[in-house]
Amino acid sequence: MYTEKVMDHFTNPRNVGEIENASGVGTVGNAKCGDIMRIYLDIDDSGVIKDVKFKTFGCGAAVATSSMATELVKGKTVNEALQVTNKAVMEALDGLPPVKVHCSLLAEEAIHAALWDYAEKKGIKIEGLEKPKSDIHEGEESEEY
């Protein structure tokens, strides 16, 4: 069901953990739907992401997309991190099953939420960053069968 890369990031997830006094923390998703992602960012004065950690409650794909998203933003500037889309996360994992695409959206959303928190704490505005939805599944309708 999953690609080798997804399995690798699920079984050996990179950057699991917390950062104390993080520059920004973002939590997205909800327990009702079965996925929650939390991303911690440590951003230095020049706006470079020095460290990133995550915690995820969710399926194999949710863990793997979180892990890959942290790898993709680590060492990047805030503006570069903003360009990391769910598509990029999926491509880096060699794809996801169609029912799991929402996990990659959640990963993108979690990064944005953490960046938003950082901007708020710093009192700055990041060009192109919108206030994240608190619930990724808002407005999503259940499928007819």
Binding site: P13, V16, E18, T27, A31, I36, M37, R38, F54, K55, T56, F57, V63
Partner: peptide, 8 residues
């Protein structure tokens, strides 16, 4: 659980 934000 170690990677779960709910547990944290």
């Amino acid at each position: 659980r170690k990677m779960s934000p709910l547990y944290e």
